[in-house]
């Protein structure tokens, strides 16, 4: 297997993993497993490198308590009742002059984009099609598929898939997720969502700028 291809697969896998994690951050209130992982040693290194400060309390609190606290914060930030940041593209995007509505034109555009890629919404999924976690999950799925194509030596498909991802990022999340994250940073009471918003914003920008897909020094390879 060519090194370059392997490296591309590695990139794609890495991107898929980050998108997967970020999708989980916004999909729902954190589970205990999730919190345990975030607190774990895997992350402590990179959080230190990145200057992500979750605060000592985050690490000291028992998971169950922390989970409850963050569930209330999640509800306050993203659900309501009361002022909250609705985590949907159509709330932020001015498309056909129709920003700021649930199930607006942006919702439909996201849905159609996803469906054109062959995916569908789970029967059990009851949210709106343009929720931030859906957009992130979509990128997770595409990047995962891309990695597989690199490994299968189907460079043409992998490359095309990457351009579909870039098209999606450019047409959708990059247009609103940074603003969404800025709102969270402003309104969060707990460090967790504030810091996760920063990571999300940075990573999305990083990926949009092509930094995450650049060939660099060869890594260990992603194709098993």
């Amino acid at each position: 297997m060519g090194t370059a291809r392997n490296e591309m697969a590695e990139n794609a896998t890495a991107r898929s993993q980050v998108y997967g994690l970020l999708a989980a951050v916004f999909r729902a209130e954190p589970t205990e497993v999730f919190l345990k992982e975030i607190k774990g040693s895997h992350f402590s290194k990179v959080f230190a490198e990145l200057g992500v400060e979750l605060g000592q309390e985050f690490y000291d609190r028992p998971e169950a308590e922390l989970q409850e606290q963050l569930a209330v914060e999640f509800t306050r930030l993203f659900i309501g009742p009361g002022p909250h940041i609705s985590a949907h593209e159509s709330i932020f995007i001015d498309l056909d002059g129709s920003e700021g509505e649930h199930w607006g034109p942006a919702t439909v555009a996201v849905k159609k984009f996803i469906e054109t890629a062959g995916l569908d919404y789970e029967q059990s999924f009851a949210g709106l099609p343009d929720h931030v976690s859906v957009e992130l999950e979509f990128l997770q799925r595409l990047a995962e598929w891309e990695a597989r194509k690199w490994c299968e030596a189907d460079a043409e498909s992998a490359d095309a898939c990457l351009s579909v991802q870039m098209k999606f990022i450019a047409e959708h999340p990059i247009k609103w997720v940074p603003e969404f994250c800025a709102e969270i940073i402003k309104k969060a009471e707990q460090p967790f969502y504030r810091e996760m918003a920063k990571v999300t914003r940075s990573f999305l920008q990083f990926d949009h700028d092509g930094m995450a897909t650049m060939n660099a020094d060869a890594g260990q390879g992603a194709c098993a």
Binding site: R27, A28, V33, E122, F125, H131, E137, R141
Partner: peptide, 11 residues
Amino acid sequence: AGGSEQALAGS
């Protein structure tokens, strides 16, 4: 950590 409740189905 990703939970089980994903939004997207199919391939």
